[in-house]
Design a protein around this nucleic acid. Structure first.
Length: 637
RNA sequence: GGGCCCGUAGCUCAGCAUGGAUAGAGUGCCUGCCUUCUAAGCAGGUGGUCGUGGGAUCGAAGCCCACCGGGCCCGCCA
């Protein structure tokens, strides 16, 4: 918050200069420069004004600085400003003041340091994970989960009433595939493997192989799919049993990854609840859909979304009366935004590791709880679904004239690096990556990757902490594994494919989740030892004004001071990369401080106190930031 | 055929929204630094015609256009 205050002061000064020119509403930027030699803040105002005033930026910069020179005295954080001949206006801050108010603010806000009220309590639904319940999560699903869960954490931190949904497509084709395996191809229901792995790695892959050799099996699949539509049929019951077993195993993986949910939405229940009929009637009334009655049309006899949405027609109901995939998503989206009345009852499905209750939709039950009806709905699905998501968003915007309430958070897929692809015997020539393929068994399961990371981390932790007990070692190794995979999924931009390389992923050095954890652990150890060597517990009455503050300390203060601006950027752009990279930078700045600046080995007690309180501020900021990323803060590792 | 996205160091990527000060990380390779708060670290070196060509601009990695290379989407599948 404090860097923001400094920027506000700079802007106030510059605005004053702008009004001297008789101008207003000039768009310009005040930010931290990348190099220290250019001061603590800089502005590009002179460049912006040069277009209007038809003078050179450097002349304007000089003038602006002259115009502001008197007002600087009234500033708390701005100490000086000077023009640079390149045309920039550079500011120097009163570092002691910045340090003082930053440390004070972190201390007083504690766990809420960095939080800003963007949401004003607004209810937002965020759907993520939504893995078909016929297989285990692979690393592609992990990207979805981690993005969604991190967005959730950031929304919650910025005062949104955020609700997390996990959509369970328990009546789709992929589920039908494994039911075919169990019912018609004699796959046993028990296996020594984790059930989701067994269904995905063995049953699903092999059934799909068998389709290739015996196409008549496809008729069995249609039969199963049809039977599953009748909620009370024997096949439907059996399918629910199997999918719930898979789901329960998937949820273990999700919880392992530090995710949590508020509600499971079962597709079979959306269908059975007749929500679709209501959605259909509503769209009819609003003239969004029509029956294609043109015998010459390829969609003759279907209910389609009218042309004009994304420039193409889209079938919602086939000529045989069955609903298409997208048709199931529409009533669900309406439910999210409260456009339709809530037909569901909710039952407690599970108690989650964080202590919260996971609810599930139900068709019967007594509860009066209603989960639907948010001001905004965010759906996390990969970019391949963009076209369909756009159609849904368009339909919804036609219903309530607000096109911004339904957001698709699109992200690119996770693919295998050339080296990793070779482990699956895939030859990719000179390509750089290979796509994963569920039906062919070409993917890396999330649990397997976590186990590998866990084992690697376990060795490292044990080497450093040989006297710790097994339980602690494993708990720590698990936290490191999760941090590692979460950070690797977050650091990349949403529109870039993640080229996943197992070897790289197992490298515990460099820009990574464990680097972040390591910085935190180092800081924690300083505080731990500080309390035992009887220097000080509390640093009261530190006179920062008369204390020397070196460049590493300044860098750390500044990094801490801009946390809330990063939080704001992240929540506005819905791009978790921003906060992830900040967290890494904060860790890096601390590591530099740690290497060069002694805390407990310092002679001057005054400096020890000041540095200890800086370390405390770092710990608080880092802990808040890591919590947004779903990365555990470890006091030792 | 139509639409969306990507192309920056050997490799994996920031920077691009809102153009401006010598283009940054990590990794790899090479060098240093642990009787001192955890070396999962730090410091230094190596390494780049920012895909290509044009345009607007005082100024382009960034904006506009074209092209090249790669990926994805466009089904009465999900």
């Amino acid at each position: 918050m404090t860097m923001r205050r400094a920027i506000d002061e700079a802007r106030a000064l510059l605005d004053e200069a702008i009004s001297h020119y008789g101008l207003k509403d000039v768009v310009y930027d005040v930010a931290e420069p990348k190099e220290e030699q250019y001061g603590d803040l800089y502005s590009n105002l002179a460049f912006q004004l040069s277009k209007i005033l038809r003078k050179s930026p450097s002349m304007i910069a000089e003038e602006v600085c002259r115009l502001c020179s008197k007002s600087i005295a009234g500033c708390r954080l701005i100490r000086s400003m000077e023009p640079h001949r390149a045309g920039y206006i550079n500011f120097r801050l009163n570092i002691h003041e910045l340090a003082k108010i930053t440390l004070e603010e972190v201390k007083s806000k504690g766990r809420m340091y960095g939080s800003i009220d963007v949401g004003k309590g607004k209810r937002v639904m965020i759907e993520h994970t939504s893995v078909n319940p016929n297989k285990a999560l692979h690393i592609g699903h992990v990207r979805n989960l981690v993005l969604g869960d991190t967005i959730y954490r950031i929304l919650r931190f910025t005062n949104h009433n955020a609700i997390v949904l996990n959509y369970i497509d328990d009546s789709g084709l992929q589920v039908a595939d494994i039911i075919v395996g169990f019912r018609f191809l004699n796959f046993p229901l028990e296996s020594s493997k984790k059930f989701d792995h067994y269904c995905g790695d063995d049953v699903y892959v092999k059934v799909n192989e068998m389709y290739d050799h015996d196409p008549s099996l496809l008729a069995k699949r249609r039969e199963v799919l049809k039977a599953m539509e009748d909620y009370n049929s024997d096949i439907a019951r059996f399918a629910r049993e199997v999918t719930v077993r898979v789901l329960n195993e998937q949820l273990k993986t999700c919880w392992r990854l530090n995710a949590r949910y508020d509600c499971l939405n079962f597709e079979s229940q959306i269908i059975a609840s007749k929500l679709w009929d209501k959605a259909l009637r509503l769209m009819q009334r609003k003239d969004i859909i029509k029956v294609d009655d043109d015998p010459a049309s390829k969609y003759h006899g279907c209910v389609v979304v009218k042309a004009g949405i994304e420039g193409e027609e889209k079938v919602l109901i086939r000529s045989d009366g069955t609903a298409t995939y997208i048709a199931k998503d529409i009533p669900y989206a309406m439910w999210k935004l409260g456009i339709l009345e809530d037909p569901f009852k909710y039952v407690e499905y599970a108690k989650q590791p964080d202590g919260s209750i996971l609810w599930a939709t139900s068709l019967d039950g007594a509860g009066s709880l209603h989960i639907n009806g948010a001001e905004m709905a965010i759906t996390v699905i990969d970019v391949r679904q963009s076209r369909l998501q756009n159609i849904i968003a368009k339909i919804l915007s036609m219903l309530d004239n607000d096109s911004s309430r339904y957001k698709h958070l699109a992200y690119e897929v996770v693919a295998l690096s050339a080296n990793t692809a070779r482990l699956f015997n895939i030859e990719i020539g000179d390509k750089r990556f290979a796509h994963m393929k569920g039906r062919e068994g070409i993917y890396i399961n999330a649990d397997d990757m976590l186990d590998r990371l866990h084992n690697k981390a376990y060795e490292e932790v044990k080497a450093r902490n040989p006297d710790e007990d097994e339980q602690w070692l494993h708990r720590t190794a698990e936290s490191i594994a999760v941090a590692s995979i979460r950070y690797s999924m977050l650091k990349q931009d949403l529109d870039k494919i993640i080229t996943f390389d197992i070897e790289d992923a197992l490298n515990l050095h460099g820009e990574s989740g464990q680097y972040i954890q390591y910085a935190y652990a180092r800081a924690s150890r300083i505080l731990e030892k500080a309390s035992s060597i009887a220097v000080v517990g509390e640093e009261r009455g530190i006179d920062i004004d008369s204390t020397h503050i070196g460049s590493e300390e300044i860098a750390l203060v500044k990094a801490i001071a801009r946390f809330d601006m990063v939080v704001e950027d992240t929540v506005k752009s819905l791009n978790p990369k921003t906060i992830a990279r900040y967290c890494y930078t904060l860790a890096m700045v601390f590591n530099e401080f740690y290497e060069k600046v002694p805390v407990l080995h310092e002679k001057d007690e005054h400096l020890i106190k000041m540095r200890l309180s800086l370390v405390r501020a770092f710990i608080t900021t880092m802990s808040n930031c890591m919590s947004l990323l779903g990365i555990d803060a470890l006091e030792r590792m």
